[in-house]
């Protein structure tokens, strides 16, 4: 007989944290260069803020609108009022999703993701994440990650978009 206090998974947590940072920045960048992402954010109310992260103790990524601009606010849930939380049930599932082994849509259908907030907001955010995935990933991987790869986008749109998102992500602008 023994009593155990569950320990941590620092490595997986660190990986997830890095990818959340990256994704957060990418959303901020995509909102500047992509009209679809911009349009989607326009439907959301001013100061709308959402968080994506893992139970039970994070890490988290907070993204929201501030004075009409989309910003990545880091990983602190308390930094501002949050209207929607996309909650991954555990760190292993977060790893699957953020290492792009499972798309957001697939993860939802596998009950890995819970939404805390209004459904319409959640759908908008999932659409944004999908578009950002298309930008960040090579076609081969992205077409597995999203339901329908937008092959009707002109090639230049994707390439220019991808370069734009990448540089802005890394530079944080």
């Amino acid at each position: 007989m023994q009593e155990i206090h569950a320990g941590g998974k620092p490595l997986k947590k660190a990986y997830v944290a890095i990818f959340l940072w990256f994704t957060g920045r990418a959303i901020q960048a995509a909102a500047k260069v992509d009209k679809e992402v911009k349009k989607e954010f326009d439907t959301l109310p001013d100061e709308f803020t959402f968080a994506l992260g893992s139970l039970p103790n994070g890490p988290w990524m907070v993204v929201g609108k501030e004075k009409g601009k989309v910003k990545y606010f880091g990983g602190n849930l308390k930094c501002r009022p949050i209207h929607l939380r996309l909650v991954i049930k555990n760190i292993e599932a977060a790893f699957l999703i953020l290492s792009f082994q499972e798309s957001t849509a697939l993860a939802t259908t596998r009950n890995r993701l819970m939404t805390d907030g209004e459904v319409p907001y959640a759908l908008s955010v999932i659409r944004i994440l999908d578009i950002v995935e298309v930008y960040l990933l090579p076609k081969l991987i992205a077409s597995l990650a999203v339901k329908r790869y937008p092959s009707w986008w002109p090639f230049g749109h994707k390439l220019a978009g991808r370069i734009g998102v990448y540089t802005r992500t890394l530079l944080g602008i």
């Binding site: 007989m1 023994q2 155990i4 206090h5 569950a6 941590g8 998974k9 555990n90």
Partner: peptide, 11 residues
Amino acid sequence: FGDSGMTFGVF
């Protein structure tokens, strides 16, 4: 139980 912070017993 990962980083759940839970306490559990094992018999």
